[in-house]
């Protein structure tokens, strides 16, 4: 959530959002667990090895994947490399600035990275060309083009969708191109605590009135692969258990509908 003064919300609107959520409905008509409309455009950037544009309501992100040959890290000679980075572009929001990544961008990147890495979407042991010498490096870069809340879920969806259609460009190096093997389809579900309720996929205004955020990323195994409590705020253990259940329910629906 941008903490800057540009991101203020009027008390009247805040009251309206809170009252509405107390009654179980959100001001845009969604139920507490509804996501905004999701639109995924795969292969949006043909020059990339894999790509996807994701629109989550008005939030818009593009993930592009570049796969190159490189040398493995000395401590893991028999494993390819995956790196994920989210750029909060200055065009995406009035208070986003160019320059080195903000704490906010770094936190988002790391939460999305963990969800993908820990659910073993890519089996890095299969990305070895010559052990200790040459491996495939998978760079996932995500540009946030318009910020209207819930970057984490938009970026996880974009990254997984892009990985699904990624091709390893082995022919550039004298081999034969092959499809990047994808083992899991993790979905992150982020909830904002507003009043005493947890609401899924908060938009910007909801983020601004929330007291804390919680993200739970699960794969097909229904296990938690990443979780992050973010922003200032507190959750009871019961709320966290509820968040896990919601992520499991809503996440599997999103997986079936948009990632299969």
């Amino acid at each position: 959530m941008p903490m800057d003064s540009n991101a203020v919300i009027s008390e009247i609107k805040k009251g309206f959002i809170l009252d509405s959520i107390k009654k179980g409905k959100r001001i845009d008509g969604r139920s507490l667990t509804d996501f905004r409309e999701i639109k995924i455009t795969e292969n949006f950037i043909p020059k990339a090895c894999g790509s996807a544009m994701v629109e989550l309501g008005k939030t818009k992100v593009v993930a592009g994947i570049k796969i190159e040959e490189g040398t493995p890290f000395p401590d893991s000679p028999e494993s390819g490399v995956m790196a994920l980075n989210i750029e909060l572009l200055p065009m995406a929001f009035p208070t986003f600035e160019s320059g080195p990544p903000s704490e906010q961008a770094i936190e988002y990147s790391r939460v999305v990275d963990r969800g993908i890495r820990e659910s073993n979407v890519i089996d890095t042991s299969k990305l070895v060309i010559e052990p200790g010498e040459k491996v495939w490096m998978v760079y996932i870069d995500i540009d946030v083009l318009n910020y209207d809340g819930n970057i984490i879920d938009a970026c996880t969806l974009a990254a997984v969708s892009a990985l699904k259609n990624a091709i390893v460009p082995a022919s550039k190096y004298g081999g034969e191109d092959f499809k990047l093997p994808v083992n899991a389809l993790p979905v992150s579900v982020t909830m904002a605590k507003i009043g005493d309720e947890l609401v899924c996929d908060p938009d910007l205004e909801e983020e601004q009135v929330s007291n804390g955020r919680i993200t739970v990323t699960m794969a097909e195994d229904n296990h938690i692969h990443a979780m992050q409590k973010g922003d200032v705020g507190e959750f009871s253990l019961d709320e966290i258990r509820k968040a896990i259940k919601t992520s499991s329910d809503i996440g599997s629906k999103i997986r079936e509908k948009y990632l299969r």
């Binding site: 820990e118 195994d221 409590k229």
Partner: peptide
Amino acid sequence: KVVLLQIDGDV
């Protein structure tokens, strides 16, 4: 009340 919580891995 929980004020910090992170998970990474398989739980």
